[in-house]
């Protein structure tokens, strides 16, 4: 049951342990659209919210590295062996040992670039506005508060029961977040 004009219900906790317990409790009750906002990475929190989800980010980084290495080698091969073959001291045109540095550098460059842009893509950034920004305690979620938000499009979303769960785990404040 989702309510109009409502993004979700947010509870603010004073400690990461209380937040993790509340998250686990919500999860065990069948809530699926739950997100936590914390000032620093809390170990095991993402696994508590979304268990058994593999981390896919290393894959684009690996693909970036493969692409960079292939491109790095190809540019040098094209240059030295195909387009502008120049005999230097009788070395073979495709002198691969001399190409290793350029290959390595482009490999790591593309790996880092894939990591950087992959991070933004996986985090859905840049996104300058998000409904959670209007939550009362959100500004302290980057300081010393731990905010848990059940989003309204969760099939089992129901204000009263979630509010009770938040309060049972010691939430300092519970606020409705408008969409």
């Amino acid at each position: 049951m989702s309510e109009r004009g409502l993004f979700g219900l947010a509870g603010s906790f004073a400690s990461s342990d209380a937040l993790t317990e509340a998250a686990l409790h919500l999860r065990s009750l069948g809530f699926r659209e739950v997100e936590a906002y914390t000032p620093y990475p809390v170990e095991g929190l993402d696994e508590a919210l979304r268990p058994c989800r593999p981390n896919r980010l290393p894959l684009p980084i690996f693909l970036g590295a493969v692409f960079g290495a292939a491109m790095g080698y190809f540019i040098q091969y094209w240059d030295e062996a195909l387009d502008y073959p120049l005999n230097v001291g009788g070395r073979p045109h495709n002198s691969w040992p001399a190409f290793t540095v350029g290959t390595f550098e482009l490999m790591v460059l593309f790996a880092i670039a894939a990591g950087f842009f992959g991070l933004l893509a996986f985090c859905r950034l840049p996104r300058l506005y998000h409904p959670i920004f209007s939550a009362v305690e959100f500004e302290r979620a980057s300081v010393d508060r731990f905010v848990l938000c059940v989003e309204a499009h969760d099939p089992s979303f129901e204000l009263q029961s979630i509010r009770r769960i938040f309060e049972r785990h010691g939430a300092e404040s519970v606020t409705e977040v408008s969409a």
Partner: peptide, 14 residues
């Protein structure tokens, strides 16, 4: 860039 510090963000970031 709209960083929110959500659990998903932190996990990808780390």
């Amino acid at each position: 860039l709209g960083w929110r510090g959500s659990a998903r963000h932190w996990r990808n970031y780390q």
